[in-house]
Amino acid sequence: MDKYINLIKLSVGSDSYDDLVAWQSTKRAQTADGLPRHVTRMWPKREAEILNGGSIFWVVKGVVTCRQRILRLDEVIGSDGIRRCAIVSDQELIRVQSALKRPFQGWRYLKPEDSPPDLPQGRAREEPLPVELNRALAEIGVL
């Protein structure tokens, strides 16, 4: 089995899965080759493990909702001259089993064994539940 590590990140400003999809379709959130990216201040020290099959898991309103396979890490120099890391991911957002996550800043490493599993194919195409209902069900362990 390949050794990899995932990242987990709050989708700040997103109120739903659809908001995240809409944001990633904007030019501002894309690389020159049209892939979604998230620019962050810190460069992951475990880059090799991330690029060996890792995904970025997105937390929307306190609930882990989906993931994207990480393709590469690009260097971005801001207008302030500071080096930043663009986490470039696959365009496909994969729905995962809902899991509660408390707020945190930046991104965190997420071990594969601690990562929520993907939803079965049939459920991945369902309309997402309203955020509050999703959170309530996750709190009682139904999702």
Rank of each mutant, 00 (worst) to 15 (best):
W23Y: 15
W23N: 10
W23G: 06
Q24F: 10
S25K: 13
T26S: 11
K27E: 13
K27F: 04
D33S: 11
G34L: 13
P36M: 13
R37F: 06
H38R: 14
V39N: 14
R41S: 14
R41N: 15
R41Q: 14
R41T: 15
W43H: 13
P44R: 07
K45F: 10
R46F: 10
E47P: 04
A48L: 00
A48R: 00
I50W: 05
G54F: 07
S55Q: 06
S55E: 03
I56T: 04
W58A: 00
W58K: 00
W58I: 00
V59H: 01
K61E: 09
K61R: 13
G62V: 03
V64P: 08
V64M: 11
T65C: 10
T65A: 04
T65P: 01
C66T: 00
C66R: 00
R67K: 15
R69C: 02
R69N: 06
I70G: 03
I70C: 02
R72C: 09
R72S: 11
L73Q: 05
E75S: 11
E75M: 13
V76G: 01
I77P: 01
I77M: 02
S79W: 10
D80Y: 06
I82N: 15
I82Q: 15
R83D: 11
R84V: 04
R84D: 04
R84Q: 13
C85E: 01
C85R: 01
C85F: 00
A86V: 09
I87E: 00
E92A: 12
I94S: 03
S98D: 12
A99H: 06
A99I: 01
R102Q: 15
R102P: 12
P103T: 12
F104T: 09
F104S: 06
Q105A: 10
R108M: 11
Y109E: 06
Y109W: 05
Y109K: 02
K111I: 01
E113V: 09
E113C: 02
E113T: 07
P116S: 03
D118Q: 03
D118Y: 00
L119P: 08
L119T: 05
L119D: 08
P120R: 08
Q121D: 14
G122I: 03
G122E: 13
A124E: 07
A124C: 01
A124F: 01
R125P: 02
E127Q: 13
E127L: 14
V131S: 10
E132Q: 08
L133Q: 06
L133A: 07
R135W: 03
I140L: 15
